[in-house]
Design a binder for these strands. Structure first.
Lengths: 269, 269
DNA sequence: CGTCTCGTTGAACTAGTTCAAGTACCGTGG
DNA sequence: CCACGGTACTTGAACTAGTTCAACGAGACG
């Protein structure tokens, strides 16, 4: 084994390394070689743990990095001139946020941890430098943007032609899908956010959300107890939202793995 | 003058060249040198004229290029599984569309010319190759994506907390702003699209759009005659949409010039 | 000339909001 | 341990913005 390779292996041989991450590299470029991975880690990545309600970045503050949730959950909120707050998205492990900051050099929203959460911070400038040398990295960056663009557009369409019930059901199914993608139980989960946040996110009054949830429970489609949700009849739920492709509804949805299967790391040495 | 330089000048010395474009390079990277510009043109750019209602690209068809409107106007439409059509955006000269296609390798919507329009087609693969050698080009590509992301997010927020009147007024002011950016008369223009399209785009019933337009006319805020619009009292209109930053509301809005002033081309020879 | 698309206007209806009251829960401090 | 205050959530009743249905007018096109 040459010296170069052993250097990279050293860099990757830590408990916090991407190589040992429980997310199984859902978030990084699909065809990452061992060396590329190490370069990203050494040059650009930083791991930080935030307490519940801690701010990860603030709207208008200078853009430096984008972020990937490692554990916990995050919400992003935009405040407009009138002072109205709008919840833009919820982010679960493996999902990426903060991309909108590149163009203006400032973040377009405020990101807050919804519970104690560990976040990977990826320095954009350094990643960009790397991508000049690694074409697959450049490809990955552009694809990440395009994917997020698709997600937001899907969300826009969704909001524009769905009823209150479709929105709430769609929201539940979306969260469920995102749990499944991480190989977690898909029909039973805890919502990290308050009803107000869900309502705000879906463009509804919080009373409407509450009413719809209790109605769904009466129809035995779901069981809901505070923030704990159980989807009892997923087929019934799916039939309520026939219009749009629900597989990945929400703006928050980010999953590099979708589309192309992940390739294992290239063997070296 | 050396041979190299005269080659590039040759490439740019045509009536269809970016150098002679009436848009004044609103669409291309801000700090383009003469040589960069020529490389883009020779390698990646193609100019095509479409008749009214002609399809520029179709949803699901393979992604190859993105597009910039040179003259005329374009709408993008998404069709979901139920068959519902949703108008995603309207694009005026200098504005870019088709970016969402990168991630899946297929276009996410169908783009149609709303009138006889000339469109610049930029081959994505070739542009990507170029950007490996030209860092400013890579920067430009990423920024273009981020900008579009911002625009779509802004649209989503806009749709989620505005009333029907705010949407219609916001729409008119947005179109007006986009005309101003091209140094055209800002308070008098022709809408290229039907009421149905506006309504669909804004998530309203077409009757609602029609009613609001006539109401605004009765209040002497606008004068409307078919598709010809005159904004009589822009201040009054602005006061109706106090909440969101209106400067660049719509998803369709794309303007590379905003933010950083354009630099003139680098002198050579 | 009829036919077709596009736009306007009126009247009835309804999904979802707003206002208001009440309940359940949770941590804090006595 | 309970009392306290605050937040999160539910439920009811009144209201309204916007939709839906339906009729009609005006211009465009063969």
């Amino acid at each position: 084994m040459n010296q170069q390779a052993s250097y990279w292996i050293g860099a990757l041989n830590t408990p916090r390394s991407c190589l040992n991450c429980q997310l199984g590299h859902l978030c990084l470029p699909g065809q990452s070689t061992f060396e590329q991975l190490a370069r990203i880690e050494v040059a650009a990545r930083q791991q930080i743990t935030y307490n519940s309600k801690a701010t990860i970045f603030s709207q208008w503050s200078p853009f430096t990095s984008f972020f990937i949730v490692k554990s916990g959950s995050v919400k992003t909120v935009h405040v407009n001139r009138r002072g109205d707050e709008k919840v833009l998205g919820f982010y679960l492990p493996s999902e990426m946020f903060g991309l909108e900051g590149v163009v203006n050099g400032t973040y377009g929203c405020t990101a807050t941890a919804m519970e104690r959460s560990t976040i990977c911070r990826l320095n954009f400038e350094k990643l960009q430098e790397l991508s000049c040398r690694l074409p697959s990295m450049q490809q990955w960056l552009l694809k990440s943007f395009s994917r997020e663009l698709n997600n937001v557009e899907r969300m826009t369409r969704w909001l524009s032609y769905s009823t209150a019930e479709e929105r709430v059901v769609g929201f539940l199914l979306d969260i469920s899908n995102r749990h499944r993608k991480r190989h977690l139980i898909e029909n039973q989960f805890r919502l990290g956010m308050a009803r107000t946040d869900i309502a705000n996110y879906l463009g509804l009054a919080l009373e409407t959300v509450s009413r719809i949830l209790t109605r769904l429970q009466k129809e035995n489609a779901i069981r809901i107890c505070g923030r704990h949700v159980e989807l009892l009849d997923i087929e019934l739920l799916r039939n309520r939202v026939s219009g749009e492709n629900l597989q990945q509804m929400a703006a928050g949805t980010f999953d590099s793995a979708s589309g192309q299967p992940h390739q294992s790391f290239v063997q070296i040495g």
